[in-house]
């Protein structure tokens, strides 16, 4: 089987309105992919920056996957959460990106969005009391023809550095171009 080593870090989250952020991440792939070693999901600590609108995470990633097919190429899903002084947290950014198909070093910028509050009351509640709408099912992130009915707002970006090592793909006739 072919193998993929994903080594890198979730560097930081930028351009978010909320000051205190943490990030949950999940590495998703198809059924023909197996996790050999490492953690396929995790969570960063809460981070904030005193001077800039960013939160540095530096969360290391070290995942070893084995693939039995090229279908279901892995993608990295990030969920950025904000935390207030009452230790309440709510999602302020969803985003995901495909793992690049070229080995080597990559810097990815994941544009995120959040669910738009439905109605003025939710807007006031989100602005002053904290908290916001969250997706009950994460499959809404990437499925559905009628997805345009999901109303969102643009949020910040998550910067991810990845170093990729591919192994034995050429033996199975896989070419990356």
């Amino acid at each position: 089987m072919a193998e993929v080593h994903i080594i890198g870090q979730i560097l930081k989250a930028v351009d978010f309105v909320e000051p205190h952020l943490y990030c949950k991440w999940i590495l998703q792939s198809g059924n023909a992919w197996r996790l050999v070693q490492g953690e396929a999901q995790g969570q960063t600590p809460v981070s904030s920056h005193r001077l800039e609108t960013c939160a540095d995470f530096s969360q290391p990633l070290d995942v070893h996957l084995s693939a039995a097919a090229v279908q279901g190429w892995p993608r990295l899903l990030v969920e950025v959460y904000a935390v207030n002084v009452l230790e309440q947290s709510w999602p302020v950014g969803y985003g995901f990106v495909h793992v690049p198909t070229q080995p080597g070093s990559h810097r990815l910028e994941i544009n995120t969005w959040k669910v738009a509050p439905a109605g003025w009351w939710n807007c006031i509640k989100e602005r002053f009391g904290g908290g916001g709408a969250a997706l009950s099912k994460t499959d809404l992130l990437y499925s559905g023809v009628d997805r345009y009915k999901l109303q969102t707002r643009s949020s910040g970006k998550v910067i991810v550095d990845l170093n990729l090592v591919f192994r034995k793909f050429e033996e199975y006739g896989v070419e990356f171009n």
């Binding site: 969803y94 985003g95 995901f96 990106v97 994941i110 544009n111 995120t112 969005w113 738009a116 023809v145 009628d146 997805r147 345009y148 009915k149 999901l150 109303q151 969102t152 707002r153 643009s154 949020s155």
Partner: peptide, 18 residues
Amino acid sequence: GATQTSLGGGAHKPAHFS
């Protein structure tokens, strides 16, 4: 397929789809 709707985005502010 279709993306989600980005409220307030697309005109002056970028609409993030990802």
